[in-house]
Nucleic acid binder design. Structure first.
Lengths: 192, 192
DNA sequence: CGATTCTTTGAAAACAGTCAATCTGTGTGG
DNA sequence: CCACACAGATTGACTGTTTTCAAAGAATCG
């Protein structure tokens, strides 16, 4: 399972064998069954998690009790509740496997240690954060400027490799519409 | 004008006089009149900008030609289009003064240099980024889980010091509703 | 004052949500 | 292998919310 991660890293940054070993020495592995949770509301998110295989989502329960999807993450992606991870406070979020998945993870302190030891890795993780900022900003823009249908079409564009692995109601919960509405959008797209 | 910034910093981190001088030596100042733009779509956002006084907004034009507000920033806040700043590519955004404002700014290279010289400052800016990530994630959650009225009420909660300095149509453009809808929401709140 | 910007209002139309029922596909246990 | 349960998707009828368009009413500023 670490192989996937090593490949992922080596395609993106240059590390010595010693550095790879160091990273591996702190890593832990876990298989997660479909529908299993690795983080539940109220728990503290204390790990940085890399997805070697599978599909997970970060979600949060709204005031009506519906699960809303903050984001999906798949092979070669990372997932955590940043807020809880950074503050050390209990999370509002859930992280759940949508498919049987395999992940690598590092405790917060271990990961911090690694970043301290390996500047290239630190720089790389910072780049990832910056990219996710851009993604989030664009999502906010879409959410305040597009109709449900436009949001759906953009979702497909932005997630070409995963949209057909997701049940429709989860896409709906990501877009902020009901599953019925999304079902109708998909059936009768507005022709322009 | 630098005084404000020095005060801002010294309330948050500890720097030597030499470090303050260094920061100041690279800083530039600017006054921005209400309705004036400091960034327009197509330009490259090459500065980190601190607001000493006033109120600005980051916005973007949607496909119907409406200006949508990505965020507001005021005294002791920072504003830039991260995407353009980071990539060096032309921005999709505008930054415009809503009130007569005074800002300090640093060119990207100068700022990078400062961060390299002053680790405490680097750490501080990283903290700010992380906080803004959390803010964005929460905004996304609100946008997919709340009604227009709830969004408005949350906006007031989250922006207690500026919501009454903003014209209503700009709040609407931040929330993703029309000004007419926001006007009605405000007039006839649902009683619960 | 006059011009501009901002806000409000009304009526109609478009859009999205709710509720209830049905349909489909999948996988599990007997 | 079948029957059944279950998760997921769809549909219809209805309700509620938001947008659109047009007009008019405040407020602000030079």
């Amino acid at each position: 399972m670490f192989d996937n991660f090593e490949k992922y890293l080596s395609e993106r940054i240059t590390l010595t064998n010693g550095e790879f070993s160091l990273i591996q020495s702190f890593s832990k592995e876990k298989k997660i069954a479909k529908r299993e949770f690795i983080l539940r509301q109220g728990e503290i998110c204390g790990d940085a998690t890399f997805i070697a295989k599978g599909l997970l989502r970060l979600s949060r329960t709204d005031h009506k009790g519906n699960e809303r999807t903050l984001r999906f993450a798949t092979e070669n992606g990372w997932i955590s509740d940043r807020e809880s991870y950074l503050t050390g406070r209990p999370s509002n979020c859930n992280i759940e496997a949508i498919e049987n998945s395999e992940v690598l993870f590092w405790g917060k302190e271990d990961f911090r240690h690694l970043l301290g030891q390996i500047p290239v890795l630190k720089r790389f993780m910072k780049d990832l954060m910056e990219k996710s900022q851009v993604v989030n900003q664009n999502r906010i823009f879409t959410s305040i400027s597009s109709s449900a249908e436009e949001k759906y079409l953009q979702f497909i564009e932005n997630h070409p490799t995963i949209f057909n692995r997701l049940p429709l109601h989860m896409i709906a919960s990501y877009l902020g519409v009901t599953r019925e509405t999304l079902s109708r959008i998909r059936r009768y797209p507005v022709n322009k």
